[in-house]
């Protein structure tokens, strides 16, 4: 027991003393993992890169290939940031991919059908994404419907609206490059040595840093965690959970709208059929990234690692010449292991 502190205080009972709990090395490790949820995905990612690097050599372990992984996960990475926000509140957003695609279609159609300046079209697209998110937010926070059902509905509605509104037409890459190159802004890149960084990849990293800052260093961020952890407790402690949920869903919609812009850069064209699996891919990234589906635990950095793990596996296995189904099989295993591990650590460290 700590002698100095013992002398400062009169009550000498053994109540609620926060003296260091004795933990073995296993306990310490679990406690560390428990308080740093992104550490395991980082380790898995590092291990995957090392293993593929050893097996495939410089074909895989080159600046070009490694930054190619970044480019390939850029869309999923950005949308996974939005997904993380929602999952941290113990929700789930199935409509992220649809909102992203529809926002990109809105940006394209505003420019090419209505002849608006592309900058204005982008703002309208971002506003559209935010609005979709806000509608989900209102249904979740105020009408109090389950997030799964709300976003399942939103997914269908937005996706159908996307096909109807776009008349299922693709806007060709060449037309965009000629008339509204700013729509393809995030497809541009800078090269450093053999490494290729698209503006989209850089945007993903900056966005992750900004959202990470908001989640860890502002009151709003702490409230997001508190609401996901125990909404009733948060409310009683003075958190306005309704506002937190509304801003989370609206913010998620805004990020999806932004992802729509980067999607144009990635594809070159505006295609209403893109991103059909984005919702599932982002949930996968978030879960592998160590964020708990029960809310209150996790980080956007972890989700980024999760997306990169998936990207590394797909590229590495493709380079090794395996059937792509092996990738899906492995990702499936990884999801279950990640969730099981989360359970184990939480129970052991608590």
């Amino acid at each position: 027991m700590d002698q100095t502190h013992r002398e400062e205080t009169e009550p000498s009972e053994d109540f609620a003393q926060f003296e260091p709990q004795r933990r073995g090395w296993l306990g310490k490790t679990l406690y560390f993992i428990h308080t740093h949820p992104a550490i395991i995905p980082l380790a898995v990612l590092a291990a995957a890169i090392v293993v593929f690097g050893l097996v495939l050599g410089t074909r895989f372990f080159s600046p070009f290939s490694l930054t190619l992984v970044l480019q390939q996960v850029m869309i999923v990475g950005i949308v996974a940031i939005a997904q993380t926000l929602v999952i941290l509140t113990a929700g789930i957003d199935l409509s992220v991919g649809a909102i992203m695609v529809c926002s990109s279609v809105v940006m394209g159609q505003c420019t090419f059908r209505y002849g608006l300046p592309p900058e204005i079209s982008i703002v309208i697209g971002l506003a559209f994404g935010t609005l979709c998110g806000l509608v989900s937010g209102i249904l979740v926070a105020i009408v109090r419907l389950p997030p799964f059902i709300v976003t399942l509905g939103m997914w269908q509605i937005v996706l159908a609206a996307n096909f109807l509104y776009s008349r299922n037409e693709t806007i060709r890459s060449q037309d965009i490059a000629d008339q509204a190159p700013i729509l393809q802004f995030f497809g541009r890149n800078i090269e450093v040595g053999g490494a290729v960084f698209t503006y989209g990849v850089i945007a993903m990293l900056i966005l992750a840093a900004v959202v990470h800052y908001l989640l860890t260093c502002t009151a709003w961020g702490r409230h997001v965690y508190a609401v996901g952890d125990d909404p009733k407790a948060a409310e009683l402690a003075g958190v306005r959970s309704r506002n937190v949920l509304l801003t989370v869903y609206a913010g998620s919609g805004l990020i999806c709208g932004f992802a729509g812009w980067t999607l144009i850069g990635r594809l070159g064209s505006v295609s209403p059929t893109a991103g059909q699996l984005t919702n599932i891919e982002t949930i996968t990234a978030v879960v592998i990234g160590g964020t708990s589906l029960f809310g209150g635990r996790g980080s956007v950095i972890g989700s980024l690692f999760g997306a990169l793990i998936v990207g590394t596996f797909s590229m590495g296995l493709r380079m090794a010449g395996t059937d792509p189904q092996w990738t899906y099989l492995l990702i499936g295993v990884l999801i279950i292991v990640a969730v099981a591990f989360d359970h184990f650590v939480r129970r052991a460290a608590a």
């Binding site: 508190a226 125990d230 407790a233 209150g296 635990r297």
Partner: peptide, 9 residues
């Protein structure tokens, strides 16, 4: 009575 604490914070 149930303390209204957020366990993971």
């Amino acid at each position: 009575q149930d303390l209204a604490l957020s366990p993971s914070l």
